[in-house]
C-alpha cells in the first residue's frame, strides 16, 4: 500500500511539476522574443531543455538570461553524454557560477606569444591564443596573494589592489600596445615554436582570464575590473574563470 501511495505521489508531483515548467515556458515564449527567436533559429539544438534545466535548478530572471540559456545549450552540445540538468549544475557549482562560465572551454592553439615593436623590443605577451575562437587567454596565479614582503613583513596587496594591477592596468597597456605599437610576433623560450602572424591576431577582441583561485573577495574585485575594462573598451569581450589554471 505504501509503495502504491509513494508511486502515486511521485507521479502526481512530476506531472504537476512538468505542467508547471511547460506552462511557464509557454508564457516565457510569449513574452521573450529573443528566446522564441533563438529556438526558431536553432531548431536542432536543445534550448528548451536548457531553459527547463535552468528553471528546475531554481535559477530566476530567466527572461533576462538568454545568454545563460545558450551557455547551458553550448555546454550540452559539447557534452552529449550529460543531461541539461547536469551541465546546469556543473556551471552553477563552478566558482562565480554563470557569470564566469563563458569561454571556459577555449583552447591553446598557441602558447606564449610575444608582441614586439619595430625595433624588436618586447611589448607584451599572451599566455595563450585560441585562433578558432579569436581569443587571447591569460593564466594568472593568485595563490600567493597573502605573500609577505620580506622587508616590511606586511602582505603585498589586497585582492582589490591585485585585481587593479593584474586585470585592469596590465590589460590596458597591452591592448594599447597591440593596437598602436606592435610590429610583429615572436616565440618565447617556453612557448609554441611557431606563432601566428600579428595580422592574424590583431583584430581579436576577446580576452579570457584563467585565475587559479576561488577566493570570494578576489572574484568580486576581478569582476569589478572586468566591468571597468568593458567600459573603456566596449568592443572587447572580457571573461574570466576561477579555480583552474
Amino acid at each position: 500500500m505504501r509503495v502504491i501511495l509513494t508511486l502515486f505521489l511521485a507521479f502526481t508531483f512530476s506531472h504537476v511539476h512538468s505542467q508547471c515548467w511547460a506552462s511557464d515556458l509557454k508564457q516565457e515564449l510569449k513574452t521573450n522574443k529573443d528566446l522564441s527567436d533563438a529556438i526558431k533559429n536553432d531548431k536542432d539544438k536543445s534550448l528548451v531543455d536548457s531553459w527547463k534545466a535552468l528553471y528546475e535548478a531554481g535559477e530566476d530572471n530567466l527572461t533576462e538570461r538568454l545568454g545563460d540559456i545558450k551557455l547551458v545549450d553550448d555546454h550540452l552540445t559539447r557534452n552529449p553524454e550529460k543531461s541539461a540538468f547536469e551541465v546546469t549544475q556543473e556551471i552553477q557549482d563552478a566558482p562565480g557560477g554563470f557569470g564566469n562560465w563563458k569561454n571556459y572551454d577555449l583552447e591553446y592553439t598557441y602558447r606564449e606569444v610575444e608582441i614586439v615593436d619595430a625595433g624588436g623590443n618586447p611589448l607584451g605577451e599572451f599566455d595563450g591564443i585560441d585562433t578558432d575562437r579569436k581569443a587571447f587567454i591569460e593564466d594568472k596565479s593568485a595563490l600567493g596573494l597573502n605573500n609577505i614582503n620580506p622587508n616590511t613583513g606586511q602582505p603585498y596587496q589586497t585582492p582589490a589592489q591585485w585585481s587593479k594591477k593584474q586585470i585592469h592596468d596590465k590589460t590596458v597597456v597591452r591592448i594599447e600596445n597591440l593596437n598602436n605599437n606592435a610590429a610583429q610576433t615572436r616565440s618565447t623560450s617556453g612557448g609554441s615554436s611557431t606563432v601566428p602572424d600579428l595580422n592574424e591576431i590583431k583584430d581579436f577582441k576577446t580576452l579570457h582570464f584563467r585565475i587559479n583561485s576561488d577566493d570570494p573577495a578576489l572574484i568580486s574585485s576581478v569582476q569589478q575590473e572586468l566591468a571597468n575594462l568593458k567600459m573603456e573598451y566596449p568592443d572587447w569581450d572580457f571573461t574570466v574563470q576561477f579555480g583552474q589554471n
Binding site: R111, E112, E114, P122, L123, G124, E125, D127, E138, D139, K140, S141, K170, V173, R174, N177, T188, S189, G190, G191, N245
Partner: peptide
C-alpha cells in the same frame, strides 16, 4: 611596461 615571462615559462 616591460614583459618578463609568460605564466607557463
Amino acid at each position: 611596461y616591460l614583459p618578463i615571462s609568460g605564466e607557463l615559462s
